[in-house]
């Protein structure tokens, strides 16, 4: 079955920084409702979809939120100062365009910098074209958030867009959910506030009490010029996580995932990520512990406005998730 990448395009372009995931939830909800028994929202903003079955309760998580900027000050000339929402890279920011919920665009400028080491977040500002504090305040409120602008582009098998972290995960889960013929009890959590510390996943896991969990998220690669050393490559298959800062995948989980992938001829690669974490980090420590794994989509330039994935890896991720849901670990 071919994947409908128009859904991914729409997903990436929806406004949804951490804490403001409502529009993403609405979109996903509409996509999956026909395939689920229950679809609900919880207090933190997670979207929870349940498909009843008779077997094990398997939780699948992908986060809806993206990184962004929060406005903290509007000066007399109408320039905005901001604080990061999630792991924003200061060095990536100058010259970037940002977009507010109601559509207003802005660009990021920088004060005069004497030497490179002075380049800090507090030297940056957003220019939304306003000429006065008053005008700016009409357009943007303090505490309001903005996201990067980054169009969805397909280049050969590669896809570039903002917010592929982790709308690509949401997309994989949606696709798998549509195809799955699993008879297990499936709970799909499209989580909120992952970028601020896997907060949505924590409450969702507590509420759902699954037997087993799989998060679907992006991972970095080591295949760009002089990159930090890492074995994951774009286009070489779906990543099966072994280790990151939030989770050491239980050996039996990683073996299960690899065995299912191998049996179905799904290309996969082992992933050892030295920085960062995923929703599984929170889920596996819920209550008395939940055995958890992670399906990773290799992604270049994570947390930039032009994250890049390979559609073959996305296909492999969908295939693996579908297979895992049908063949859970005993």
């Amino acid at each position: 079955m071919d994947m409908d990448f128009r859904i991914l395009e729409q997903l990436t372009q929806i406004f949804g920084p951490s804490g403001s995931e409502e529009q993403v939830a609405e979109f996903i909800s509409a996509q999956i409702r026909p395939y689920c028994d229950e679809v609900t929202n919880d207090t933190l903003g997670n979207l929870i979809a349940v498909r009843h079955g008779t077997g094990k309760k398997i939780m699948v998580a992908a986060h809806m939120d993206e990184i962004g900027l929060m406005i903290t000050h509007i000066d007399k000339e109408g320039f905005l100062r901001f604080t990061p929402l999630g792991g924003v890279r200061t060095s990536n920011l100058v010259g970037q365009r940002v977009k507010f919920n109601r559509g207003r665009m802005g660009t990021i400028g920088v004060e005069k910098i004497a030497k490179p080491s002075d380049f800090k977040l507090d030297k940056l500002f957003i220019d939304i074209g306003a000429v006065s504090q008053n005008e700016a305040e009409q357009i943007v409120r303090l505490g309001e958030t903005a996201v990067f602008v980054g169009d969805f582009v397909e280049v050969g098998s590669r896809i570039m867009a903002k917010a592929l972290d982790d709308r690509i995960g949401c997309f994989v889960v949606i696709e798998a959910l549509k195809r799955s013929k699993s008879t297990n009890e499936l709970v799909f959590a499209f989580t909120a506030q992952e970028e601020l510390g896997t907060r949505g996943a924590k409450t969702a896991a507590y509420a759902l009490e699954p037997d087993l969990a799989i998060a679907v998220d992006v991972t970095a690669t080591g295949d760009t010029p002089k990159a930090h050393s890492m074995s994951v490559k774009l286009g070489s298959g779906v990543g099966i996580k072994v280790f990151d800062r939030s989770l050491i995948t239980p050996p039996q989980i990683k073996r299960w995932m690899a065995a299912v992938a191998a049996e179905r001829n799904i290309p996969f690669q082992w992933e050892v990520l030295e920085y960062g974490g995923t929703d599984s980090g929170a889920i596996h420590l819920s209550r008395g512990g939940v055995p958890s794994g992670v399906i990773s989509i290799p992604t270049r330039y994570v947390h930039s406005p032009a994250e890049m994935v390979d559609s073959r890896d996305v296909q492999a991720a969908v295939d693996l998730l579908v297979s895992l849901l049908e063949h859970p670990l005993e």
């Binding site: 080591g222 050393s229 890492m230 074995s231 280790f243 050892v272």
Partner: peptide, 17 residues
């Protein structure tokens, strides 16, 4: 320690746990 990459000459790169 954990193997993070096997280089083309067969030496193992690693990171710490």
């Amino acid at each position: 320690l954990i193997v993070k990459k096997i280089d083309s000459r067969g030496f193992l790169q690693f990171t710490s746990i």
